[in-house]
Write a protein that binds this DNA or RNA. Structure first.
Ligand SMILES: [Mn+2]
Ligand SMILES: [Mn+2]
Ligand SMILES: [Mn+2]
Ligand SMILES: [Mn+2]
Lengths: 218, 218
DNA sequence: TTAATTTGTTAGACTTATCTAACTTTATAT
DNA sequence: ATATAAAGTTAGATAAGTCTAACAAATTAA
């Protein structure tokens, strides 16, 4: 059984692999805030366990087994977030921190029961998909709000980034998942959008905000 | 911040101290299934942190600070058990194992929220008291069923031992907390009790069972 | 195509938690 | 009071996870 620490490496490897099939030691060290020799040592252990393939001076690749193990941790994380939000009434800006701890709990039936109580949800409170136990999950092709033209009517479906700061900003603006937004104006100069939602019009969202909102066209 | 492992030592020290003010290294090692040198090393560290007092060849005593830290872990454990049982519908024989993991979660507000959702319970699903954050908890003076005479009418309030095996035995007998029992007969030869409850009479409970049931006289 | 920069590796050290074997001190029993 | 047993300590070793300093390889830029 992998330790908490190993699980965090596996999860990081999975995230990095989603951005780029080939993973660099530097990126891994950066992601986990450890030195390159530390990351290198761990890669040797994970290689011995069949979780990555790696050869001297060559980029690292995660194996099918590695993906399976990563999905298991991510499933625990996202089910926990959903349970904390829906059942325990935590805000979506609070759940990630707690889920970072809960995801390492070994007893599977805790998460199976969460899943059951929640009615087998397919996404977490930030719109990210919850993998099933075999590691499969939907990857719907949402667009960034910042990619869409004036006049588009969209529904917010997920976030590209879910830092507490960003979530608190969205709270302040009363923007939630499934909020229906109409794009009224795009300011060419700075990429900011003027939008309307919930019957309020003229709300200005900066470029970096629109870049983080994943939406579906209505 | 204490690691999981240290927290387990602190909890063990607290349990041992409840049986016997003075704690021996052997008992500590036995409790945690580690060797005496291992326990000894940890005691040196805990002494440096002010959690125990201990001098060479003298028995170990837990400090007020040690008790406070133990109570914090026990509170997390017992609130978790109660949450798992009441809200997540796990059986009382299932909750301990999961709570052994949950008790090490750092984020206090998770447990505060459990407490809130549960309506500030004073005991766990096995009748053990839940300490408050300052480490105070009720220690009601229940009697063992095995100490009471024929004719007594009692209510089961807690268990002296909560192994999954014992709890499954109680499930089979439909005995729960708050079950009202009447003692019909005591067999002198083997100390077994014949009792009635829930309208069923003539149920025989062995000595070891009666020894584990903590009851209040009606 | 050489030089500079980035990336990866090695070597050596530290911390925490664990062990066994051997020894010392304290307690118990004859 | 002495011998035996139990409890506690020391010494030395191991494994996991981390670091820094120094060096080697690969990539990128000039
Ligand atoms: Mn998260
Ligand atoms: Mn999330
Ligand atoms: Mn328990
Ligand atoms: Mn309990």
């Amino acid at each position: 059984m992998a330790s908490n620490i190993k699980e965090n490496y596996i999860k990081a490897l999975f995230y990095l692999h989603q951005k780029n099939e080939e993973i660099s030691l530097s990126a891994l060290g950066e992601e986990l805030q450890v030195s390159k020799p530390t990351a290198n040592d761990m890669i040797k252990k994970l290689k011995a366990e069949g979780i990555v393939v790696s050869e001297k001076y060559k980029p690292i690749r995660i194996t099918a087994e590695g993906k399976r193990q990563a999905a298991s941790v991510i499933r625990k994380h996202r089910l926990s977030e959903m349970f904390l939000a829906q059942i325990m009434k935590f805000g979506w800006e609070e759940v990630h921190e707690i889920a970072e701890e809960l995801e390492h709990i070994k007893t599977e039936k805790l998460f199976d029961r969460m899943d059951d109580i929640l009615g087998f949800p397919t996404t977490d409170p930030h719109g990210s998909p919850i993998p099933d136990k075999d590691g499969n999950f939907n990857k719907p092709d949402y667009k960034r709000l910042s990619q869409l033209p004036v006049g588009s009517v969209v529904i917010i479906k997920a976030l590209r980034e879910s830092s507490a700061d960003f979530l608190q900003y969205l709270n302040k603006k009363s923007i939630k998942l499934n909020t229906k937004i109409t794009i009224e104006h795009i300011e060419r100069f700075d990429g900011s959008y003027t939008v309307s939602y919930d019957g309020i019009s003229g709300v200005v969202l900066g470029k970096s905000v629109c870049d983080r909102l994943l939406v579906k066209l209505v």
